[in-house]
Amino acid sequence: MDSLPAHMRPDRSFQGLILALQRYWADYGCVILQPYDMEVGAGTFHPATTLRALGPKPWSAAYVQPSRRPKDGRYGENPNRLQHYYQFQVILKPSPPDLQELYLKSLAAIGIDSAVHDIRFVEDDWESPTLGAWGLGWECWCDGMEVSQFTYFQQVAGVECAPVAGELTYGLERLACYLQGVDRIMDLNFNGREGADKVTYREVFFQAEQEYSRHNFEHADTAMLFEQFRMAEDACRKYLAAGWREEGNRKQHLMALPAYDQCIKASHVFNLLDARGVISVTERQSYIFRVRELAKACGEAWVHTEAGGAA
């Protein structure tokens, strides 16, 4: 890290932090992907995690995923909460025996020295009811702050993971706040420059937070969204049905990915409806159930594709 120019240092620059993590995991041998081009609630939704976690084939990937949680919008006013933020996601299948050490080294790579900082693995069982997924692991604490999620996937999209994949999720804004020593995400130095060249997180995202908060809570067109949910659900089922091929006794699926896109769509539309407060407590469960059913059907299709291990 000392060899880096100042503007690339993770403790000075938000993008420097992202680049340092990418470099570390690239050195380890991960495929460095770009964000998935759809709205998702978390990096886990990226098919590179959800679908690739399934099936027997080894898979190591890392990527940044912009994540949208419409309900967490605070018009840019809350120091720690945003409706749009970045996650850095690492998925390693099968989970390597030294995954904890790899993780700790990644912290060292971004300047967190375990001789000075108190790093802890605190129980946190992860479950995603919408994805039909669960795993065991921890929240990783650095000096009392949760900086990552660490999960050994046991089941995803209703399918048992065999072998198990290890998933690391770094909350980038929070980690950057810690490294840069600032209290508000908006105050982060984005590009690591100083003076006139400095670009802050506020300059990049404050207006977006305001606009999307207005949209998410006040104006998102609920009639359209209800319709979109229904359409995405229908389309997902249609593509799934159309994708099955049977040759002899071999069953194959040829359209798992496009079908899964519609599942992601439905999930995000549901999150928007939820933020708008137009879904009652009881309805909420049934929407979650409907998305989960889509996710499970996609998982089932995926394990009958080539990358899913069918070939």
């Binding site: 099968p94 989970s95 390597p96 025996p97 065991l136 993971c161 072998p163």
Partner: peptide
């Protein structure tokens, strides 16, 4: 109360379950 599988062996039937990976 809750246990898990991990690593390459978790693909095989009868893989060990422990609370977190046993080393």
């Amino acid at each position: 109360p809750k246990s898990m599988r991990w690593g390459a062996r978790s693909a095989k039937p009868g893989a060990l379950n422990w609370v977190r990976p046993l080393h």
